[in-house]
Amino acid sequence: MAFFKRCSVMLLAWAALQGAARAEPYVDVLDLPAQPSALAATSALRDVSVAGTRLVAVGPRGHILYSDDQGSHWQQAQVPVSADLNAVSFATAQLGWAVGNDGVILHSRDGGQRWEKQLDGRVLGEQVLAYYQARAQAGGDQWARWVGEGERLVAEGADKPLLDVWFSDPLHGFAVGVFNLLLHTVDGGQHWTPWLERSDNPQGLHLTGLASADGALYISGEQGLLLKLSAAGDHFERLSTPYAGSYFGVIGKPGALLAYGLRGHVLRSTDGGAGWQVIKTDLNTSITAASLDARGRFWLASQAGDLLVSNDDGASFSPLAQTQRAPVSGAAFDSGAALVLVGERGIRTLAPDQPQQP
């Protein structure tokens, strides 16, 4: 029996060695280009944006898709990484940025067909640490905390999820992420400056979204955190709100600002975030995406696929009847006034002002 047991062990060891010999060598997702997939448009996606008349969507495994026919057909972009991507934003029809896990920031100069890497988590921590060390050496005890944050980022390695990105023009933009990760650029992303100390977020809460509304820039976050860029443009100030749960985004237009998040919560402000009113949605699922149509109506979408529309500047919402629904993580209106939704089941397009056929 011992002989057979030894033979079995030897055979198992030999099989393991053969399997190891055949195994592909590990390649970091930051070095592995996104792989082509015929199923990309029906697989999970996390955000969608408009680039002129083009639609661009991003998602896991570095997938970026673009459509030039209002979502009827999608092509896969050339992407240098296969890290999961969480958000995409375009400053012009040609210039766009995408952010994701592993501290990835990507840039496109051709409307989303080809992308290049501007930053990743392997160097982000070192850059943050060097930035705050230089300020500490220049004088001031207030920088010690931020040097410590830089050291933490370095120790964590590449794992630094960025959750949203926004640009006001081809040069000026922000990216936000977990644990108060806040970056700013004034040269189109060639350099990203840490702004960790420039937000009223002493607990280091996650920053979930960026949005401009009525001439102001807002950041949403967890545990009731809402921030607004100061009039001087050098600091994000905390706004007081009546909800202590997480916000997933902000959307607005002149005279009306909405913050939305967990368990169907929506808050509305008509004075730039100074005061807030709780808006009834009758939803218990998280609201994860929002968009404005050409008529100025607010649209909200939930994690369960619910769709709500407001005809009174966000003061109230009505549900949209749907024959099919799927979880939504991103929403945008295309140039043909159709609502494009992305989520765990890929892309779907609705013409919300036309009756849906069963």
Rank of each mutant, 00 (worst) to 15 (best):
Y131W: 07
L163D: 03
L162Q: 03
L119S: 03
V123Q: 12
Q118M: 03
V176F: 02
N180P: 11
D164L: 05
V123E: 07
W166D: 09
R145G: 10
A136T: 03
Q142Y: 04
V128A: 06
S168H: 03
V165K: 12
N180M: 09
G148M: 04
L163T: 11
V147M: 01
F179L: 15
S168L: 03
G173W: 10
E149I: 12
D120Q: 09
V165P: 06
A138Y: 00
V178F: 12
A155R: 08
R122A: 11
Y131N: 00
F179V: 15
R135Y: 04
W166R: 12
E156F: 15
Y132L: 02
F167K: 10
A175P: 06
A130Q: 01
A175G: 05
V147G: 01
F167Y: 11
G139R: 00
V165Q: 06
R145K: 11
G139E: 00
Y132W: 01
Q127W: 05
P161Y: 14
D120C: 07
G140I: 02
D141Y: 02
R135A: 06
R152N: 13
F179W: 11
P170F: 09
V128N: 08
L124T: 08
A175V: 14
V128H: 11
A158G: 09
E156K: 13
A158V: 11
Q118R: 01
L162E: 04
R122N: 11
S168C: 03
Y131C: 00
G177A: 10
Q133C: 02
H172K: 07
E149P: 01
V147L: 00
F167Q: 11
Q133P: 02
R122T: 07
L162G: 09
Q133S: 03
Q127P: 09
G125T: 05
R152D: 14
E126W: 14
Y132G: 07
V147P: 01
D159I: 01
L119A: 01
Q133M: 05
R122Y: 04
R152P: 05
Y132T: 04
E126G: 14
E126M: 13
Q127H: 09
D141H: 05
G157L: 13
P170Y: 07
F174H: 11
D169W: 05
S168F: 02
N180E: 13
F167M: 12
R122P: 02
G177Q: 02
V178D: 12
L124K: 07
V154N: 08
L162S: 07
D141G: 05
L124Y: 05
G139L: 00
L153E: 13
R122S: 10
L162Y: 08
G173N: 12
L129N: 03
G173A: 13
Y132E: 03
A155H: 05
V154C: 06
V178E: 15
L163H: 08
V123T: 15
E156P: 05
G140E: 00
V128K: 12
K160D: 07
V128P: 08
D141S: 08
A138S: 00
W166Q: 08
G140H: 00
L163W: 07
F174W: 13
Q137W: 03
D120W: 09
A138Q: 00
V128W: 14
V176Q: 05
D164M: 08
E156M: 14
W166K: 10
Q137R: 01
V123S: 13
Q142L: 10
G173Q: 13
